[in-house]
Amino acid sequence: MKHGRWRFLAGALVPALVLHAVFVLSPYAQAFYLSLTDWTGVAGEARFVGAGNYARLGGDSLFLDAVRNNAVMLVVVPLVTIGIGLFLASMMHLGGRGGRRAIAGSGAYQIVYFFPQLLSLVVIAVLWGFVYNPNNGLLNGALRSVGLDGLTRSWLASPSLALVAVMAVLVWSSVGFYVVLFSAAIDSIPRELFEAALLDGAGGWATFRTVTLPLVRESVQVAFVYLGIAALDAFAVVQVMTVGPGGPDGATEVIGLSLYRNAFQYGKFGYASAMGVALFFATLTLAVLALRSGRRERLELA
């Protein structure tokens, strides 16, 4: 039996560990080393340049554009998505009796809202590329049909609008997921709390602020981390949808796109790796901040 136990454990763990070591662990480890070299892909030609790549990042104006755009998205996309998501999720429950039961038809709404979450970001980017098309797109078509011709724009070609247009797509594609997530969190709040609030004469907004929001806080934090990570990426949408890609004047450049271009178009593998390391530390900081704020206090429900 003892013998069989070890044989089984080895058989269960070793193949996955080998796969993990070769395709996941070793690339991650190599990336840190590569970021300190000027490697351009020719075997044996990697010179150690220390922090040189990182110093160059600071003077790369396109990379700085990317950092700025990612930073803007990191703030705006989670805030807007969570705002709309919480609004719709609590609306679903507000409409019902006692501020508690989901309104009739909320299941059907959730089905529709959730669908974009399932689509590939490429599909979403191609679709919205059409929607934003200045001549025959859905958006300008709609504006023209209601007589607002003056508001029509080349959404993706104008430097001041392109980033907003990209963020709108990210928000559009993720709101539904968070409506479902928050709605489930609200469902799990004990009904008595809403009834008590109602008895105390609390209105919709007061109930939301004092009962719903504190009790779905954990879900909101999870949402911030996930949306933050998505906002630090945004590669697929930008690469497929915006001109260049990277937008007019680098207006929609993101770190991932800079990395991809430097590595696989210019062959600057060391430099691109330094961007990867920078992105890693940004992600790590985000996760640590979110986890630490999550530890503050937990509301216990008796």
């Binding site: 990336a31 990570i229 990426d233 991932g256």
Partner: peptide, 10 residues
């Protein structure tokens, strides 16, 4: 917890 971008080049 690691972004795939970090591993991409290696």
């Amino acid at each position: 917890f690691f972004p795939v971008f970090l591993a991409l080049v290696p």
